[in-house]
């Protein structure tokens, strides 16, 4: 193995630091603008006065408490439904034999290739036929059977040694018991990784929730944030940044707290 020279180390660390800096810059700006009076939006003075007014004004401009509740309900509902449905489906595709298996799996894979935006009108028609327009369920329903989750979990389940499966069967484990006792525990890293992708995607999703919801009682945070799109009267960066920080704070905090677990599960699940 070739030894790492000081120069290499400087280069690697320096490059990493530079990338990190570029990545953090927008966030750092958001924090700066959110905690200072609007006069300091574009003036960076170390001694600029700190303030929480921007948060207060953002909070008072929209019913954020309700939006938070809606978003949390939404992502919890979607993730639970996805985990249950997709684990069952993935297990079937990985370990069971049934007619049309390959065809069905191809269909599910095709879901990965279709841009969700193309389906907006069709999905809207379906929700209308079901009488679900303007409900939180309607925001989540089209995403319950996630092709990505089925694919990811199937691949994970396929890598689980057949011996474990057979040993459990010999011990008299039922099919569902097998799934619960063998496959789910071993598939956890993949599920965790998928959970993060799913939660962050639906936390930030905008277009579909905007179209399908009509009232404060159902709208998620992202749609609530759009109230600050005030093109005719000039942009209040301070307030926008405060609102944006507020809405993304739970995700950021969650990621910082569980950083190690997330990174590990991503490495194990092999997705980036």
């Amino acid at each position: 193995m070739i030894g790492e020279t000081t120069f290499d180390r400087v280069l690697i660390r320096g490059g990493g630091a530079l990338l990190a800096l570029i990545w953090i810059a927008p966030l750092a700006y958001a924090v700066w603008a959110a905690f200072h009076p609007p006069a300091f939006e574009a003036r960076f003075e170390l001694m600029a006065p700190l303030t929480l007014d921007n948060f207060a004004s953002a909070w008072s401009q929209a019913p954020f408490a309700r939006y938070f509740l809606n978003t949390i309900l939404l992502v919890t509902m979607i993730l639970s439904a996805q985990l249950v449905l997709c684990t069952l489906a993935a297990f079937a595709f990985a370990r069971l034999e049934f007619p049309g298996k390959t065809f069905l799996f191809t269909l599910i894979l095709m879901q990965l290739l279709v841009m969700p935006d193309i389906l907006l009108v069709e999905n809207y028609k379906t929700m209308r036929a079901l009488g679900l327009v303007d409900t939180i369920i309607a925001i989540g329903l089209p995403y319950f059977a996630s092709g990505f989750a089925i694919f990811l979990l199937r691949q994970t389940f396929m890598t689980i040694p057949k011996e474990l499966d057979e040993a459990a069967r010999v011990e008299g484990c039922s099919l569902l018991g097998l799934l619960w006792r063998v496959y789910v525990p071993l598939g956890k890293p993949a599920m965790l990784a998928f959970g993060l992708v799913s939660v962050s995607h639906h936390w930030n999703n905008f277009l579909w929730p905007l179209i399908i919801t009509n009232s404060v009682e159902t709208r998620p945070l992202t749609v609530g944030l759009s109230i600050f799109a005030t093109t005719d009267s000039g942009t209040e960066w301070a307030v926008i940044n405060a609102a944006t920080l507020m809405t993304s704070a739970p995700l950021l905090l969650g990621f910082l707290l569980f950083q190690r677990q997330f990174v590990q599960s991503f490495m194990r699940a092999g997705i980036k």
């Binding site: 009108v121 809207y124 028609k125 209308r128 905007l210 179209i211 749609v223 109230i227 799109a229």
Partner: peptide, 20 residues
């Protein structure tokens, strides 16, 4: 309330196509 003008147009066109 439907956000910006662009969002409103998108939402309205979808609703019209969706029969609602």
């Amino acid at each position: 309330y439907t956000g910006s003008y662009a969002d409103t147009t998108t939402k309205a066109i979808t609703a019209v196509r969706g029969g609602n």
